[in-house]
Design a protein around this nucleic acid. Structure first.
Lengths: 291, 291
DNA sequence: TTTCTTCATAACCAGTGGTTATCATTACCT
DNA sequence: AGGTAATGATAACCACTGGTTATGAAGAAA
């Protein structure tokens, strides 16, 4: 017979009763349970009414248990012990979760790492590992709990939360504010992935032929292009959402007039089996987005 | 470590969870628990948040359990089974209580028995036995759960609820209403207990010497004196509270002017160990008094 | 007799734990 | 492909549960 709801009192009454039986005092049980004595008194009385028998003998300011009461104390203690031990195991297993994040170089450097570092400075952070690669296959391993990914198709086996759309814009330091774009050195990094935007395919996709004669400066990493831009040495391409910190602090200015929308988006990829409420809460904390 | 309040979720969440795990459906669990599906959904979600891990995988309109969820289902089922079995024993022991009442002849006949009979005609009455004796020792045995008792001292080992004070008055049928008391036959029953009031000690205690020459009719039981009074054959002595039914229906008239207050009272005697909320409720029902 | 401790209970009310309505997702059928 | 049915999620709402404080009763101790 499994339909407990009809046959059991509210289970928290049992928990209150166990505390009274163990401590031998309504007042001490109340202290332990962090409630008032009156709340304990009321619940014990209600429990007695529901069970149809006295559990506690009240003798002025002293209590003792009836035979039924002693029996219930034993039953309650044993089942609460058992339940508590089981729940502790489940909770400890969940609490020891280590979160493995993955992202490409650009997102990692300018978007994710700052957020992760801020999170790691909060009290009691969960342990995190971060995989950084421009090779999608490295990002989407089975060990990865969550990946910051951009594209227009969700990889199979993953669930996606949209973070923001992919846009590329020229970014310049404030000192270059009054220059025309084609007068500036275009700071470039030729990346070997299909999804990468450099100045050549940016111009093609924008239909901007006026950039053909502009000076091109090739650098050895995307980060280097941005460093150079920050120093006022030219214009780099970048995604304003990824680089929103540098934009907000005025270190870089986006040239909105040349915005390119690739039709792709940045997603947080997760898998249902790992996206527990605890981890979800963690992402919300790290990314500052409701996930 | 016994301080469960800090370490356990609300225990009714476990009960809801067990139903979901067993039925494999939020909707079916809701039906079994007699709540809405939304209430179940909300509690499972809260439980997952508290434990910090997913318990249920939701797949459109189908659910499955995570490994942690399966583990909790087992733990919950076992501890609820154990608790339920123990509580059933305690409740069944309480429900099988048979109530043994005791009272003297007069109270039994005119006060208690009518009430008990009315109670026994209600649906689903608890079994009762009734001990009737004019010997106090017979009334106050260890087998007696409750006794209707009159006196001015509570017997040791019993708790008392005052029912009413003991008063004695002459009672006559309406047909004898306009006769003076000393013109009437005084219907008497000499009882051999110290607490009994007959016409001789009534006159003594009242200081009513005018009754000395009145006709005395000795009958073989107190009930017989009352029967004769009801037939208009004279005046019987009686306690108006015990005989309040006959007075209210006008069968007997109390002669208030001759009321004798003995200083004694009628009590319901009980013992703490047997006065469970269930039995207390029963008395309230039988006697029409809050006990 | 007075004081202290502890349980009982009345009156009150914050917030828990339900509700209904609606939406999203999946499965199934035509 | 489109429509329907089934099922879980969640927002908004609110009744009433489960707490609270204050007070009284009972018993123990000085």
């Amino acid at each position: 017979m499994k339909k407990y709801r009809r046959s059991l009192p509210p289970l928290d009454y049992i928990l209150f009763y166990e505390a009274v039986a163990r401590t031998g005092s309504f007042t001490r049980a109340a202290e332990e349970l962090s409630v008032s004595q009156a709340a304990v008194s009321k619940r014990i009385k209600n429990l007695e009414t529901m069970l149809g028998c006295a559990l506690v003998l009240r003798d002025g300011r002293r209590i003792s248990l009836t035979p039924s009461g002693s029996k219930l104390a034993t039953i309650a203690s044993e089942s609460l012990d058992f339940l508590n031990a089981g729940l502790m195991q489940i909770r400890d297993a969940a609490a020891s979760t280590k979160l493995t994040l993955a992202a490409n170089l650009a997102v990692s450097q300018f978007w994710l790492t700052p957020r992760v570092n801020a999170y790691l400075l909060t009290p009691d952070p969960a342990p995190l590992t971060l995989t950084v690669s421009d090779n999608d296959a490295d990002l989407l391993t089975t060990e990865t709990d969550a990946c910051i990914y951009y594209g227009d198709e969700i990889p199979p086996g993953w669930d996606a939360t949209l973070l923001f759309k992919e846009r590329w814009m020229p970014l310049v330091a404030p000192s270059l504010k009054y220059h025309d774009l084609h007068e500036l050195a275009l700071l470039d990094f030729d990346k070997l992935t299909l999804k990468w935007i450099n100045w050549s395919n940016f111009a093609t996709l924008k239909g901007e032929t006026f950039l053909d004669g502009a000076e091109r400066v090739n650098l050895r990493s995307y980060g280097a292009t941005l460093d150079a831009a920050l120093r006022g040495e030219g214009a780099a391409l970048g995604s304003p959402e990824v680089l929103h910190k540098q934009i907000e602090t005025g270190q870089l200015l986006p040239l909105d007039a040349y915005a390119l929308d690739t039709g792709r988006s940045y997603f947080l990829l997760t898998r249902n089996s790992t996206l527990t409420p605890r981890i979800r809460a963690l992402f919300t904390q790290i990314f500052g987005y409701p996930i």
